[in-house]
Amino acid sequence: MMLIITDIPSANLTPSDSEYVFIENDREITPCRGCFKCWIKTPGQCPIDDGFGNTGKLLSECGSLIIVSKLTYGSFSPFVKNVLDRAISYVHPYFRIINNEMHHRLRYGNKLSCSAYFYTDNNGDLPDEAEKNTACRLVNANCKNFGATVNNIIFLDSCERLQGLSLS
């Protein structure tokens, strides 16, 4: 299954997989409050009841994560970042060491690959190389933490360029 987290309406996107789930910005999302309850009280489930609490579990059921986001200072947009912040239950609170760095252990056994599509707004603020470079570092770091492989990191100069593009 393919999980697509997007800050633009899903109607404008074409997944390459026939089985997919969209998480999109169609209702109010609450920020992560750092309570750790998704680790220590209801493992795998964020306790905030706003319909975005099961992203960690959804990630465990998919082989492919697609992120579609406005490039925001080298980060994902606030909505996409919010969804990902709330998906921390995908990993386990205990730790492992990878390349001499501390990371969380994986909770689930699935193999995940990730692609990120960053688009720029049409307001004239074109991203500079520093922002693109930061975004690549962010995706790589997130994938390391989620035990995922990086499939694609693509930059587009407008969100219209996503229309008709087969997301993989």
Binding site: C32, F76, P78, K81, N82, L84, D85, D125
Partner: peptide, 24 residues
């Protein structure tokens, strides 16, 4: 601020976006 998934917590990122929008 605390590090959230290698980046800025989303509520702080929202604040940064809003202030940048105000300034522009």
């Amino acid at each position: 601020f605390p590090l959230y998934l290698d980046g800025i917590p989303s509520h702080l990122l929202s604040f940064m976006c809003s202030t940048a929008e105000y300034i522009s």
